[in-house]
Amino acid sequence: MISEESTIGAMALTDLPDRQGFFKPHRIALMAVAAALVFCVVWFMRWDWIPEYGGRLAHGVGVTLLMLFGTCILGFLFALPIGLVQVTGPWPLKMLAKGFCTVIRGTPLLLQLWLLYYGIGSLFPQFPAIRQSFLWPYLREAWPYGVAALTISFAAYEGEVMRGAFAGVPRGELEAARAYGMSRWKVFRRIWLPRAVHRALPTLNGETVLQLKSTPLVATITVIDVYAVISKVRQMTFLTYEPLLLLALIYLCLTAILVVAFRYLENKIPTRGA
């Protein structure tokens, strides 16, 4: 497979324009044009539906964020072993992890989501053992399938990144740790894992933004996230563009907040020479 890192930056917004030198003469003219456009959009289009759906929209944004952070954290936890066994594991595990990454990265997320929800989900009711188990109330809902699909996808993409990160930790550092008499587990815990996570951090920003861009797909299996709320608005009000424009604006703001938060975090973590 081709390394993911070459395109993350090209597909996900990972940096915001800096404030220094932002105001130049031509930019002021451009901003005037942009302001006029925004004014036209606000003035000539219909926005009176927003107060009515405001509460549901806020709830939808909450669901989207919950999906995003839940699946990113879960996916990252799965990505660690997937990356690790590809570097150091026995060959059956290595092949398994590699096959998992290839299959998940080689098929569209929408298809995986529908396979889980319509395919696997339709099998469960056939087994009485599952119907009577404590899991059944959850398995009847849509969101566990959305969480599962997004987690699997994030684990596969980030597992590929972690493989590179684990392999990229200099041999000498691990040998030095061994020479100090650390056990294999201690070397992993103290040196290998922290160094690998540190190396993977720059791509984590982009992967998280990419994951945010994947979350609206769960609306196709009836999870009520912000995209589903907007679809509902479009059905109720017969408006084509206004709800979609608002949705784009919401995602733009969410991405910007993520980018700012990651920049803040990155500044907190010391790097050599910085």
Binding site: Y227, L244, Y251
Partner: peptide, 11 residues
Amino acid sequence: RAIPELVLILL
């Protein structure tokens, strides 16, 4: 790069 493909495709 900041807006989901799904939303862009609809728009």
